[in-house]
Simulated assay, not measured.
Amino acid sequence: MSEREAVFEALRALMLHHSDGLDVRRDQPGDLVVRTRQPDAKGQPGWFGTVTARKSYVAFHLPPLYDHPALAEALSDELERRRQGKTCFNFKALEPAVLDELAALTERVRAAVDGA
């Protein structure tokens, strides 16, 4: 298994761990899509998260951070360096402390989505 595949599998497991009761729309090699059961402004299921393997990294998206930016205000420098935009975090390697922090952030996002 390549490093990128190992990173994808770790991030996929993290996302799925926090997706109980949500709608896993796609779960295939290199691509995981999880939607909420709450409708968005267009009446479609809202976005919870995605994990996508790219050519040289794996992207972990938490779209609810658009609506709840305060949940990501106190990120460590290590996680902040992986942040692209408001909701995406890119990974090339597994770093347990950073993954633990990402898991805690994902848990906070899930609580915010459940409370919405």
Rank of each mutant, 00 (worst) to 15 (best):
Y57G: 02
V113D: 10
V51R: 01
E78M: 05
L79H: 01
Y57C: 09
P63W: 07
G43R: 02
F48A: 09
S19L: 08
A112F: 14
D100P: 00
H61T: 03
L94T: 13
D67R: 15
K55V: 02
L71A: 11
P63V: 02
G46W: 04
M15F: 03
F91L: 05
L71E: 06
G21K: 08
V24F: 12
E3I: 06
D27L: 12
G46N: 04
E5W: 11
W47H: 13
P45R: 06
N90A: 09
V109I: 04
G49D: 05
R54S: 07
Y66H: 15
F8Y: 15
R82I: 03
V51K: 02
E101R: 01
N90I: 00
R35L: 15
V24T: 10
L79S: 04
S76G: 11
F91Y: 11
L75D: 03
E73I: 01
R110S: 11
P64G: 07
S56P: 00
V109H: 04
M15A: 15
Q38A: 14
Q28M: 14
R82V: 04
L14T: 04
P63M: 07
V34S: 06
A59H: 03
D100H: 04
A111E: 15
L11D: 10
A59C: 07
Q44K: 15
R35T: 00
L71I: 05
P63C: 04
A97Q: 09
A41S: 10
E78P: 01
R54Y: 13
V7N: 04
S76N: 07
E5F: 09
L62E: 06
K92A: 14
P96M: 05
H18F: 08
R26P: 00
A70H: 12
Q28E: 15
H68A: 13
L105Q: 06
K92W: 02
D27I: 10
H61R: 12
A74D: 15
H68M: 00
Y57N: 11
A74C: 01
E80Y: 01
S19Q: 07
P69Y: 07
C88D: 14
A104S: 11
L65C: 04
D77V: 10
E95R: 05
A112M: 10
G21W: 09
S2A: 03
A74P: 00
M15Q: 02
T50L: 07
L65E: 10
E3Q: 13
E107M: 02
D20P: 00
A112R: 10
R25K: 15
P69G: 06
E5T: 12
T87R: 09
E80K: 13
D40E: 08
V113P: 10
A53W: 00
A6L: 10
E101G: 02
P29V: 09
A104Q: 14
A72V: 04
R37A: 06
H18G: 03
Q44I: 00
R110L: 10
P39Y: 11
D20E: 15
L11Y: 05
M1E: 11
L79K: 00
E101T: 01
V51Q: 06
F89G: 09
R110D: 11
R35Y: 08
L32Q: 05
R25V: 12
F89K: 07
L11Q: 05
L32K: 05
L22V: 01
L75M: 13
A116V: 12
E9Q: 14
H17S: 12
C88F: 01
P96D: 12
T87A: 14
V113A: 06
V33D: 12
R82K: 15
E5G: 03
E107N: 09
R54N: 14
